[in-house]
Amino acid sequence: MLERDLVIVGAGPAGMAAAVSAYEHGARDILLLERDQYLGGILNQCIHTGFGLNYFKEVLTGPEYADRFIKKVRAIDKIEVSLKSIAVHLTQDKILTFIKPGAIQKIKARALIMATGARERTREMIHIPGDRPAGVFSAGLAQKLINIEGLLPGKVAVIVGSGDIGLIMARRFILEGAKVKAVIEIQKQSRGLMRNVVQCVEDFGIPFYLSHKISRIYGKNRVERVDVVKVDENLEEIPGSKFQIECDTVLVSVGLIPENELMEMAGTPSIPGLFVCGNASKIYDLVDSATRDSEKAGKMAAEYLRNSR
């Protein structure tokens, strides 16, 4: 079986920062796996500004931030990048299986960094009752459809949850010529940053309902309307507060969950030489902090390799 010193799964900002830092701390045989056809991870679809203020002391968009690290990774010949390569299995001995076009490969990693990012929570996880029509999207998926695929997933949207992705998508929908009828948040305060409330919601006069929730979705084939109710301190529905909004799209922006299926597959919670960083370890609001922590993971992996020789 092929053996590699360091295998990194995921080439978002976390995986790229870990790779560069592992190299800087002495690792010389690094394989960086990415299932997508590009490096950069979620940053490629985050075309808005707000990245890099701490790390680069500049205001960058997601793709610009990614570009800086892509250039660093590409400049180091000891980092082998394998695109369209999805890791599908992991054992306790750090034997990793991945699939790439035309091949299944098994490699034994002496050290391993998981930088697989996060996935979005879905409608199912917040239990919105009602019909199951087309037109309900997670906000990050809608972001990918618009910014990467150039497809507008709806014309009149209601946004559930005030996470940053939802707020950013409110503005994006409007700039693309769609309508946003409301942003609805069950808590008393916005979950997203105030700066996003200001420049994405207030700038466009979008009604922002705090302490409200969607209690039902209606629609035969496509979403037609939603019920909205006000909630009390205990998040219970206040009787008589119900009103309806007509829309063809519901965007759900209710948070992210670390993606670590491969580690669950391997079984034990702690495997010597396995490190986790970026959104796969905990959800970061700011990419700068994810980068910094991932640099530490890269350094630790390099040290582990040195000490285990």
């Binding site: 075309i47 500004t49 618009i146 910014n147 990467i148």
Partner: peptide, 20 residues
């Protein structure tokens, strides 16, 4: 405000180019 948006690409491997 800084404006960010996308532009349609023709004949390139990417469909949308992000711009600002």
């Amino acid at each position: 405000r800084i404006l960010t948006a996308t532009v349609l690409c023709q004949g390139l491997s990417l469909k949308m180019a992000p711009v600002r």
